[in-house]
Amino acid sequence: MYTAPFEYRRADTVEQAIGWLANDPENSKVLAGGHSLLPLMKLVLAQPQVLIDIGRITALKGIRIEGDDVQIGAFTTYREIVESPEVNEFCPLLAQAAQTVGDVQVRNRGTIGGSLCHADPQADMPAAVLALDAELLIEGPSGQRTQSIDGFFLAPFITSLAPGEILTAVKIPKLPAGAHTTYLKRPHPASGYPLVGVGIWLTVHDQVIDNGHIGITGIADLPFRARHLEDFLKGRLLDAATIAQAGPLAADDANLDDDPYKKNLLQVYVTRALSQFGESFAAKGLNGKS
C-alpha cells in the first residue's frame, strides 16, 4: 500500500526542522518513528505534502540526568526507555508503561515524542508521563518554551503545540527514593491499545501513604490525573479497607457517568493496581518498610 506522494526532507538540526515547518505548517508534518503517522498516511487519513524527518537529529535522542530530572529526547524509542538504567532507577513507571506498548517491533521504532504529540487518547505513555509530572521542552518559530504535561492534551489527537512547534524533550523529576510504581493495563484484545491504563507511584512509610500520583489513560476522552483519589489516599493506611474505598474515586476526575461499563472497568483496574502494592507489602510482613 503506497501513501499519497509527498516531499521528503531530512533535518539535521532542530532549527532546520523548525525552519522547514514554518514554510507551510498546515501541509507539513514531522516524521518521528512513523508508527502512527505512516499507517494513517497509508489509509489516506493523513495526507501531508511535506514530511520532515527528525530521526537523524542527534539532539533529540537519548536519556540523561540533568540535576533532579531525567531528560528524555523526543526521538527516544520505547525500547531505549525500557532498557535505560536511568529510567529504571529514577522513574521506573515510564519503563513499565513503555514495556506494554504494541509489540517488540513497534517498541523498536515508536518514540515517546511521537506518542505524546500524536495524543491518541488510547495511548499508554500519557498515564505514566502525567503521574510523573513531566515538563515538555518545546521549540518553535518564536523560540523555546516549557509546558507542563498537565494542559498539553487538549482534545483527542490535539495538543497545545502551536503550528510549527516541535517537542524536543520530556523532563521527568526523579521520584522520591523508595517510591513504589506500577502500570496496569487492560489491552484491547485486538489492537493491544489500552482500554484502560493506570500508572501509579506511591511513597509509603509504616504502611501509611505519604504521597502519590495516579495517571489514567484509555478510558476517557483525554488521559487525566486522578486527583480526588490521590487526595483521598494521602495519610491513609495502605490496606484492604482503603483500597476498597479508593477504587470508585478514580472516576471523579473523568466524565463517565453515561458509561457504566467504563466506570466499572476503571474501578476494577485502580483497585487491582493498588492491591499489587498491598500484596508486595503483605509479602514483607505488612510493615511497609522496604
Partner: peptide, 13 residues
Amino acid sequence: NQAVKSCTVLAIQ
C-alpha cells in the same frame, strides 16, 4: 540489528 516491520518504515528513513 533491530526487528522492525518493513511495511511501516519508509525506505528513505
